[in-house]
């Protein structure tokens, strides 16, 4: 257990280091000088030179990299070349918004996939199971932004049940927060839910064939309780893998969905950064997204160990 933790932590740190180099290098090799990009083509050479000095862009790239990395480690994301505002607090605020969105999307996906996949597996020979399969196939093919637009058309425009867009922090007005969260969460989560459903289905099908499930039935458990008590944890192992991958997809999906629903999250921040040519901001946001994905994978790995005692090193 401890060994695995150390090993996984080492892998995490190495991946973080490598990806920070990649992100930094990618931004550095982009044609054009960040100061020039930030100020625009019409800026005078003096102004550009001044900005370069001000932000240390005249120093060697390695120095700049370690400066940037050191800042990240301390939680200091630097200062925007464009707005001259500190980037850290913006990312922090926006990240919370995106986190709500991703978590809500995940919840939607799970709430859809867990029962639907289980029913599909349990009734894989019956009409109800096949019908569900067809619906999920359809769901997989719908992109999140399209789902979002369809939802807006139905629930905001036609029925007027929900606000078409916007964002209210939960502390300010919980009811409004939830109302506004519903549609973005659905458009993110339904599609992922459709994908996840198929993994849940195959995981449950697998478990249903296991001998220990027959043992559970032979003990006197009815089919559903047997699956619940003895199947869920076993089926969860492969599903958690997919869930980890999907979190990454959800983060990316959030970028788009935030646009559709006018939500001030990381995605909007990133797109704003791109359109304002705020390179450091873009670099920081991308790095934060990468860190989030890597951390999720790390946690998924630990979750395996919690789920499956066979993976606990030293337990033999």
């Amino acid at each position: 257990m401890v060994l695995r933790l150390i090993e996984r932590t080492a892998v995490l740190l190495a991946s973080l280091a490598v990806s920070s180099v990649l992100v930094f290098a990618f931004m550095a090799i982009l044609p054009g000088d960040p100061a020039r990009v930030a100020l625009g083509v019409n800026a005078s050479d003096e102004a550009v030179a001044e900005l370069r000095r001000q932000f240390g862009l005249d120093r060697p790239l390695t120095t700049q990299y370690f400066e940037w990395l050191g800042g990240l480690v301390r939680g200091d994301f630097g200062t925007s070349y464009v707005s001259k505002a500190a980037i850290g607090p913006q990312i922090f605020d926006r990240f919370q918004v995106t986190l709500w969105l991703v978590v809500a999307g995940m919840v939607v996906a799970l709430v859809v996939a867990a029962p639907a996949g289980t029913v599909m597996a349990a009734r894989h020979r019956k009409v109800s199971g096949l019908a569900l399969s067809a619906v999920s196939q359809l769901g997989v093919a719908v992109p999140a932004f399209l789902a979002g637009i369809l939802l807006i058309m139905v629930f905001a425009v036609k029925l007027g049940w929900l606000p078409a867009n916007g964002w209210t922090p939960p502390a300010q007005d919980p009811a409004m927060f939830l109302k506004q969260l519903v549609m973005p969460a659905l458009s993110l989560g339904l599609v992922q839910g459709a994908v996840l459903t198929r993994y849940v289905r195959s995981a449950v099908l697998e478990v249903l064939r296991e001998d220990y499930l027959r043992t559970a039935r032979a003990k006197g458990l009815r089919p559903f309780p047997a699956l619940w008590r003895h199947g869920v944890r076993n089926a969860a192992v492969p599903v958690v893998t997919v869930l980890g991958l999907q979190l990454a997809t959800l983060l990316i999906g959030a970028v788009v969905v935030e646009r559709v629903f006018v939500i001030p999250g990381l995605g909007s921040l990133l797109l704003d950064g791109v359109s304002n040519r705020d390179l450091l901001l873009v670099q920081d946001v991308v790095m934060v997204l990468v860190i989030a994905v890597l951390l999720v994978n790390f946690l998924v790995d630990l979750l395996y160990v919690a789920l499956d005692p066979r993976l606990r090193v030293g337990s033999r």
């Binding site: 296991e210 001998d211 220990y212 027959r214 043992t215 559970a216 039935r217 032979a218 003990k219 006197g220 458990l221 009815r222 089919p223 003895h230 944890r233 076993n234 789920l307 499956d308 005692p309 066979r310």
Partner: peptide
């Protein structure tokens, strides 16, 4: 039906299967 059989299995009637390696839940 299942409701009645589940009261019989494991109570009045029990079974030991051939393959012990897979008969038990690995996560419990």
């Amino acid at each position: 039906d299942e409701r009645r059989m589940s009261r019989v299995r494991g109570r009045h009637l029990a079974m030991v299967f051939q393959e012990p390696m897979t008969a038990l839940n690995p996560t419990m």
